[in-house]
Write a protein that binds this DNA or RNA. Structure first.
Lengths: 334, 334
DNA sequence: TTTACTAGAGTTAGCGCTAACTCGACGAAA
DNA sequence: TTTCGTCGAGTTAGCGCTAACTCTAGTAAA
């Protein structure tokens, strides 16, 4: 039987030190006027009793939890993990905890998560690549004290924003442009499922048309942002459209799935088929052929989002937006 | 100015419904005796006022936070992320939050984390691949109400355990045995830094000796469990010992770093140099040549650890240990 | 008719902490 | 000597919730 010994409370410390609770509280917070003697004495008692404040009680009074929520659609995707690492590192130094919530690409789950984080009274939330429509997302985050969105625009009064430098979907256009310039004629595109995916695809085609790049609606598909979905979708695309000489994938995991599919269909990359991913996860540079992809400074996206959130938590509700570079990194797959 | 509207409290709901606070509390918890009429009425008011209980207040009374801590040395390592995914998924269904803490391979940080989690009054902790010695770890976790360790043994009264089927370090021996049987004679080993690393290496050599596999202390090195360290360490090993015809790495990230190093030194895998990793992360099967490694059902390790922790949180302090399979998966790198 | 339950509530007393006010003593200025 | 300010505390009143007890009216058994 391992009985946990009862933790000392403020009252215990105060009694032992022969002072009032407020005096102890002041010593802990370094506020108010305390004589050096008293301060020293109280500190010794705190040390001796191994007193540490009860966060729940403090939260009840101050309405602050020193905890923030991080919501991402898939924590096994290295893209989000590296962002998370930046967030966690930053907030740890500030004495905050990070509550992790994985929506698993499920919008209903994301909703439930945002509500639960509200109950937990997190001081703020970082929402990464939300899968919710504005109609669903905005009311949910409006209830949170402080919000920062990553890869998503927000009305200025609702929260700050960290996004790519180029407008949504424009990355694919950049990729197509590059592929066309290097001689590819029939370019496939595997778009990622989002609440706004159809818009994306329309824009993509319009842009290609204006660049005089051949388009064909059958060359485009949409899939979940993971390896298996990329593999499955690319397999269908390659089998159904052997004429394709290039494929752009929404992110690296999908591209790597596509790479495996291409190999299975006997297509040689980059000779028969060029391939472009996105996000530059570690794996992209390690596979053979190394994957051409878009730069993404994930760790700093995380720390930047964290910094913006802390600013809002601190009461400074100035809207900020930060855009990160995402130019193409040419490797062996194109 | 976005003013958050004040959330309704139990007292607000009680007043509005014309009942006592306890009646509302009972309706929420589904405990005690309430007439159907009253229950229905209170529920409507709760709905109308969008009342949701304040977790901090509840915690203050019940001493339960419905939050658990997950401590891992590196959340960018897919190995830990997949375990975490299992943990998060399981606990989400049970209505728990997961506090993520990343020690960044830093023992001092891990200590601080375990103390902070104690302040936060988490209901339990899952400690993954702790970098602390028993002398440091055990007193820290003894203060937690419920603990499960992954990849680490614990005194039975302190917590349950999820580990590999084979004793620590034995994986490397299995790998060496396989390599020797397939004709390799000079086998290098890149061990991972742990608090117990030296013990590991001694055992490794003794085992090899008893299997009549050639040993040489200079063929063995130790490094941090990440790609870069694997690359650096393998580079030195390959440069300094061109006679090596096989390398065993502590985990897949290190093995992939070594694979890159081998390529740079013009060594062909598997012809010139065999390579074995560990943990079977996604990347291991995707690189060329595909990496021979050890199976590891990471997601289920996570859910199992979570299940064992929930059991302890529920008051059942029976010691449990669960061992997962870790046999070798032969791929192209050997 | 008295006793004894029981259903369906309500009342009381905190959990551990902090914000905001109060209070006495001492030294300096008027 | 009186007034006033300041130092160094202490006191009071909750934050929002729940555990544990109390209370009342109605019903069934003796």
């Amino acid at each position: 039987m391992a009985h946990k010994q009862q933790r000392a409370t403020l009252a215990d410390v105060a009694r032992e030190a022969g002072v009032s609770m407020m005096t102890v509280s002041r010593v802990i917070h370094g506020t108010g006027r305390i004589s050096d003697d008293t301060r020293q004495h109280v500190r010794e008692i705190i040390e001796k009793m191994e007193y540490r404040p009860n966060r729940a009680a403090r939260t009840l009074v101050t309405k602050r939890t020193f905890t923030i929520g991080f919501v991402a659609p898939d924590i096994t995707n290295p893209y989000f993990t590296e962002i998370l690492q930046g967030v966690e590192e930053f907030f740890w130094r500030e004495g905050y905890n990070v509550l992790l919530a994985n929506s698993n690409e499920n919008p209903d789950r994301e909703k439930a998560i945002l509500e639960q984080l509200e109950d937990t009274m997190v001081d703020g939330v970082i929402v990464c690549s939300s899968r919710l429509s504005d109609d669903e997302l905005l009311p949910l985050i409006a209830k949170h004290a402080a919000v920062v969105a990553v890869n998503r625009n927000l009305p200025q009064h609702l929260g700050s924003v960290v996004t790519t430098r180029h407008p949504r979907g424009y990355r694919a256009v950049l990729a197509a442009k590059y592929l066309h310039e290097t001689g590819r004629q029939r370019i496939g595109y595997i778009n990622l499922v989002r609440s706004i995916s159809s818009v994306n695809l329309d824009m993509f085609m319009r842009e290609l048309q204006s660049l005089e790049i051949p388009i064909n609606p059958n060359w485009y598909a949409t899939c979940q942002p993971n390896w298996q979905a990329g593999y499955d979708t690319a397999s269908q695309l390659i089998a159904g459209h052997p004429e394709l000489d290039a494929i752009i994938a929404g992110n690296d995991l999908v591209a790597l799935g596509a790479m495996r599919a291409a190999k299975q269909y006997g297509r040689h990359i980059p000779d028969d088929l060029a391939l472009i991913g996105g996000d530059d996860i570690l794996m992209a540079s390690q596979v053979t052929p190394a994957l051409t992809t878009f730069r993404s400074d994930k760790y700093n996206i995380g720390t930047t989002a964290a910094k913006l959130l802390l600013q809002r938590i601190g009461g400074d509700m100035t809207y900020c937006e930060h855009h990160y570079q995402d130019e193409l990194i040419i490797r062996e797959s194109t």
